[in-house]
Each structure stands twice: as C-alpha cells, then as structure tokens.
Amino acid sequence: MKAKRLPFCLTPLLCAGAIGVAPAFAQVDFTGEWAPFYHEDGVERGPGAELGDYTELPINDAARMRADSFDADRISVEEEYQCRPHSPDYGFRSLGNVRIWREIDPETQQVVAFHTHTLAWDSERTIYLDGRPHPPDYAAHTWQGFSTGVWNGDALVVTTTHLKENYLRRNALPRSDRAIVTEHWIRHGDILTIVTITEDPVFLEEPLVRSTNWYLDPGQHIGIFGCEYAPEVPKPEGTVPNFLPGQNPFLHEFANYYGLPFEATRGGKETLYPEYQEKLKDYKPPAKCERYCRCLGIYECNVNSK
C-alpha cells in the first residue's frame, strides 16, 4: 500500500491541518482478518517438525544438545507443557490465522497501538506505538513479550523483549527468554509480509531470519483454540523425561529417511549458506515419496501419499 502525500499547501489553514496529521500519512493500516499461506516450511507448520531436523537454523551447541536430550514424552508427562503457547516469533508460523486491529487516541487521532489475536492458543498481543519504554529487566516475561513499534516509511518495525523461553522449532530446539525479536511488518495491498529477526545470545550463532505471508480474508472467523491440561501419561511427580547424552535413538531417522548426511541435519550457521551444498554432493533423495508428499498447504500434508 502506497502512502499518499499532499502535493502542496493550498492555504495556511490547510497547511496547518497537514502538519497536524502528517505522521498519519506514513502509517499503514494493518487492520483486518489475515489468513496464512502456509507455503513457508509447510511440513513443519502442519504435521510438525521431525525429531532431529535442525536444518536451516543457526543454532549453537547448547541448543543442539538441548534438543538431542528431549524425550517427546515430556509433553505428555509434564502437564505444564500441554498448554504452552507459541511466542510471536514462532506462533505466526504455526496456526497463524490472525486478526489485527488498531487503537486510536481520540484526542490526537494517532494510532497508539496495534493488537493481534492469533488462532494458536488464542494468543493476544499489543504493539505499542506511543513511545513508552520497555519494562525493567526484572519484570515478568510473557509468551507474547512486550512489543513497541516505530514506522520506517510504510513499514512498521516492531521490537519485542520480555519473552518467555519458547521454541525455535517445536522439536525441542529452544529459544531463550533473553532473545530480542525484531519484526518488519509490510503490507502490499491485500498481502501482509512479516520479516522476523530473532537474536538470541543463548542459543543462536547468528540472527535467525524468517519471513511469513498472509492474505486478507475478510470472511475469516477465528474460533476458540482452547486448552485444558491433564495427566496423559501417569508418572511419579517430578519426572522429567529426557535422553542421556548420546542415547537418543531417534536422532538419525530424519537424515536416514531423506538420505542426508547426518551432519547436514544438525544446523548451525555454516549450513545456512550456499557453500555448504558442496558437502552434500552425495545426497540422493528418497526413491519414492512416502510422507508429506503434497505439502503445499497445511490441509494438504499427508503421509503415504500416492
């Protein structure tokens, strides 16, 4: 959406008015019901990331070992994990149907905040545009974090701090509560693009950059997500399912199925760049596609597709 500008001031009165509302002309309205395309990382967002798939992520050794020791029973045994939401740096990439609306100060007619409601975990978020500071370091962290935004031309640049520990990928690759997430919200007509840059001194070797796209869908109705935790797998209280170092039997499944060198599935910044393809010369894709073969959209992913 292109910003409109007054060509010139016709009268002093109009000039005064133009000056008074000038910032609004640089502000794009993101209001609406937005449906995700799901064409980015479709498998990961539909069926879910496969265990041991750390590809495309600049993770460090700590993140890798954390995920290696993860036993998927943990989600069932620890009730506290069952209703654990996704933060915006990952939640927009899950069930990312989102409603966006803006809050306008009646005194100034300036946009002072955007609000979002996402299908996944009924997550609600506020992005303040009124110049308020972020809370002190010792304030509580939340799943959605604390977000402020500033305009860069027609793009909204959002900075989020005070996030809870969450996922880089929901096969247990963690993102820490010290991460700072910067988003660039860009609207092109009925298409919304958000570029997300995650900087995490705890688990990343370099910033993780993702872009996600939505289309305007005025007929969209976001239902209730809902979640109630309950004991699914009875175990003694305090049990934390985990694999001891070197004992996770599932880590090679992903590499073996897709014929990838195991090292190539382990992530790290080196694996993000084209030069790394030189190390994959022996790669041969599976002879026959047997899972996630038509994963062009979330409802098309399937297993054992013909």
Partner: peptide
C-alpha cells in the same frame, strides 16, 4: 535472585 516469574519459568528451571 533474578526477575519476576510464574509457573512456566519454574518448569524450565525444574527440568
């Protein structure tokens, strides 16, 4: 010591 927390933060620490 450290920031204000809730149950989810304690879970990470317990684990």
């Amino acid at each position: 010591h450290g920031r204000l927390c809730d149950e989810a933060d304690v879970v990470e620490f317990r684990d």
